[in-house]
């Protein structure tokens, strides 16, 4: 184990994992117990050395997130009525509207939060899960990719909140009203599913060398 571990450690520092030492570390609080212990005595979490079953959850939630992301882009996110004229705009359409209005900065924020981040999250999670399944030991950069995906997930909700605020605020009878479109629901679901997918991932799997069990 140590050979693989060392070859892949970025700082080339020799490390011993709890698993290699015949111990189980608690994923919640880090306390260490002999293999076979069922629950952490400190925090009560069920002890699993490597949660291989987590990969199934990761894939299931990831696919669910990808599926509901499609209607989120096809159906309108906002229905704007100004002086009796109704206009529907999708996520990407909203970005183009913003560019037309000259607010490039906000257009960029919306585009990044609702297109770039979700799509790159799908790719990143799938990539990490595939690596684990193929038994490729990861490096610190793979772990940082995971940390980033986990951190950034919630920020995609921005678009849903923007729609909520606009719909609450812009209710000026005849002059202008804004109503949310059905895409808001599927977009919110997509973000939530992808967050669950990333949260289910056991990051300790990322580091493992092939020997350390990859059969699902």
């Amino acid at each position: 184990m140590s050979g693989d571990g060392m070859a892949n450690a970025e700082r080339a520092q020799p490390v011993v994992t709890a698993r290699a030492a015949g111990l189980v570390g608690c994923a919640e609080c880090g306390h260490v117990f002999p293999v076979g212990a069922e629950r952490c005595r400190v925090c009560g979490t069920r002890l699993v050395s490597r949660d291989m079953a987590s990969l199934q959850k990761v894939w299931a939630w990831l696919f669910a997130g990808m599926v509901v992301y499609i209607p989120a882009n096809v159906y309108p996110m906002l229905r704007t009525t100004t002086f009796g004229r109704t206009q529907e705009s999708t996520i990407v359409g909203g970005v183009f509207d913003l560019i037309d209005h000259g607010s490039i900065g906000v257009a960029l924020i919306v585009f990044v939060a609702s297109v770039v981040i979700p799509v790159s999250k799908f790719i990143a999670i799938a990539y990490l899960a595939l690596r684990v399944q193929r038994g490729q030991p990861g490096t610190a950069s793979h772990f940082h990719l995971y940390e980033f995906v986990e951190f950034i997930g919630r920020w995609s909700m921005i678009d849903v909140f923007v729609v909520a605020i606009l719909s609450a605020l812009v209710q000026l009878n005849f002059v202008a009203t804004i109503h949310p479109g059905i895409a808001a629901v599927s977009f919110a679901l997509s973000v939530a599913f992808t967050m669950i997918s990333a949260n289910s991932f056991d990051p300790r799997l990322i580091w493992d060398a092939p020997r350390e069990g990859t059969q699902l």
Partner: peptide, 27 residues
């Protein structure tokens, strides 16, 4: 290292002074 852990565990009957990183399992 592995043997040392086993040794330490046997001698102190406790692994309470060790901590495994919850994110990467390093002791």
């Amino acid at each position: 290292p592995v043997a040392r852990i086993a040794y330490q565990t046997a001698m102190t009957d406790s692994v309470s002074d060790l901590i495994a990183c919850p994110k990467c399992d390093v002791l």
